[in-house]
């Protein structure tokens, strides 16, 4: 499916589950989903034949300190239909909690550990939520935008 077809089909099929679905200026289909429907939507996208997003290509997060939110972004790809979809779910920055996708795509295990390690997003239901890059007793979350205030990053002139 092309991204436009994908967009209109998702609009019809998941009318109640999603918040918005847009085609970005870079021509990617981007779905924003509410947290309570997040896992169910991904489950359907993975299993239903027309979508069949069997590959979780990437999972990461973006920090927006001004809006006090952290967006968890996953990129799906279908090895069968060759289409790509971006899924976004917004979490509260002061206490970020998102359901895990591990039961749908096992590859989410390490991706989510990485996001937990670097952003402090807690993935509920994750089987092994430990730090993956930083030491186990580390207290901070390096990829959050306020981390630079600790004097770690030297800003180039």
């Amino acid at each position: 499916m092309t991204n436009e077809e994908l967009k209109s089909k998702i609009e019809v099929d998941f009318k109640n589950d999603i918040q918005t679905v847009i085609i970005s200026a870079q021509k990617e289909a981007i779905v924003t989903v509410s947290p309570e429907h997040y896992v169910a939507l991904c489950q359907k996208l993975c299993e239903e034949k027309e979508y069949f997003f069997n590959h979780l290509s990437s999972l990461t997060a973006i920090d927006f300190p001004k809006e006090n939110k952290i967006t968890v972004v996953s990129h799906l790809w279908s090895y069968k239909h060759f289409h790509q979809l971006t899924i976004k779910v917004v979490a509260d920055r002061s206490n970020p909690k998102v359901a895990t996708l591990e039961n749908i795509w096992k590859s989410a295990n390490w991706f989510e550990r990485e996001v937990f390690d670097l952003y402090g997003v807690v993935f509920e239901g994750h089987s092994d939520l430990r730090r993956i890059m930083m030491p186990d007793d580390y207290k901070k979350f390096p990829l959050r935008k306020d981390f630079a205030d600790d004097g770690f990053i030297v800003k180039p002139s």
């Binding site: 970005s24 200026a25 870079q26 990617e28 981007i30 290509s57 990437s58 990461t60 973006i62 972004v73 990129h75 790809w77 790509q84 971006t86």
Partner: peptide, 23 residues
């Protein structure tokens, strides 16, 4: 980059799928 723009592009590197996500 334009405001609120984002891209996820993938290539086949020597080791496999290499994706870059930019906002």
């Amino acid at each position: 980059a334009p405001l609120n723009s984002e891209i996820y592009s993938r290539i086949e590197s020597s080791r496999g799928e290499m994706g870059v996500y930019l906002v």
